[in-house]
Amino acid sequence: MKVYFVGFGPGNVELLTLKAYRLLKEADLIIYPGSIIEESFLDEFDGEKINSYGMRLEEIVEIMERAVKEGKKVVRVQSGDPTIFGAVWEQIRELRKRGIDCEVVPGVSSVFASAASLCIELTSPSTPGVAIVRPAGKTLREDYLEKLAKLPLTLVILLGVDRIEYVVEKIAKVRGEEEPCAVVFHASREDEVKIVSKLGKIAEEVRKRKIERTATIIVGKVVEGYDERSHLYG
């Protein structure tokens, strides 16, 4: 008995992995988060579809457990990559208690889809790493944005465009309002919107475009590219 947790990527079917596509084609039951993934994205897959939006964890697990015990192939769709803010472990933990095995199939995170859309790297010879975070809120007491801003890292903020002013305030305290940044809405989709700006102006531009969710914020010098030469090519 097994449930497959499949990363659906940023919402572009062409970015599904071959394995994810095959599992969705074979699935008898597809459970998807309708608040992020529209059912129309799943039209080419024949399995029964259940929108999990608004359901409690226990309800979702019970549906998966019942279907698996009926001999059905169950795919639990997760937006982006299941391992980044996907709350996937909570589901796996409960399924394992019920003796049900799980497999996680990676997906393209909006982090990487956004960088690809901008044709940038998230690292550079002088930017040795990336911090992927979300702003503090109902379920997170502290986000450490100011502390992270002091490090030579590219900052990628998910689930935070609705709090863009707060994000800007925290990071600008350390890096200043001239720090390069970008916001990508619906990366890789037909209605994608890209905004490349500075910290001091980005919030106003985001509000003008009426972007309130499903967008990725990238902050750092890499947004503008770099002139350094890496050792990769000698």
Score class of each variant (00 low, 15 high):
Met1Cys: 15
Val3Lys: 10
Gly9Tyr: 08
Val13His: 11
Glu14Leu: 08
Glu14Trp: 07
Leu15Ala: 10
Leu16Tyr: 09
Leu18Pro: 09
Lys19Asn: 13
Ile30Met: 14
Ile31Glu: 10
Ile31His: 09
Pro33Asn: 03
Ser35Gly: 14
Ile37Glu: 08
Ile37Lys: 11
Glu39His: 09
Asp43Ala: 15
Glu44Ile: 02
Asp46Gln: 04
Asp46Leu: 04
Glu48Pro: 07
Ile50Ser: 15
Tyr53Asn: 12
Met55Gln: 09
Met55Cys: 10
Leu57Thr: 14
Leu57Trp: 15
Val61Trp: 01
Lys69Asn: 11
Gln78Tyr: 00
Gln78Lys: 04
Gln78Ser: 02
Ala87Asn: 00
Glu90Trp: 04
Gln91Gly: 00
Arg93Asp: 02
Glu94Asn: 05
Gly99Thr: 01
Cys102Lys: 06
Pro106Phe: 11
Val111Trp: 01
Ser114Val: 14
Ile120Phe: 10
Thr123Gly: 12
Ala131Asp: 02
Ile132Thr: 05
Val133Lys: 05
Val133His: 06
Thr139Ile: 06
Leu140Ala: 08
Arg141Cys: 08
Arg141Tyr: 11
Leu145Thr: 06
Glu146Cys: 02
Ala149Met: 05
Leu151Val: 04
Leu151Cys: 05
Leu151Phe: 03
Ile157Glu: 00
Leu158Ser: 02
Asp162Trp: 06
Glu165Ser: 03
Tyr166Asp: 14
Arg175Tyr: 02
Arg175Met: 01
Gly176Ser: 11
Gly176Arg: 11
Glu178Tyr: 13
Val183Tyr: 13
Val183Leu: 14
Phe185Cys: 14
Ala187Ile: 11
Arg189Asp: 11
Glu192Trp: 13
Val193Ala: 05
Lys201Asp: 12
Lys201Cys: 10
Ala203Gly: 07
Arg209Thr: 10
Arg209Lys: 15
Ala215Val: 12
Thr216Glu: 06
Ile217Met: 09
Ile218Cys: 07
Gly220Trp: 11
Lys221Ile: 08
Lys221Leu: 10
Asp227Arg: 08
Asp227Tyr: 08
Glu228Ile: 06
Tyr233Gln: 15
Tyr233Trp: 15
Tyr233Arg: 15
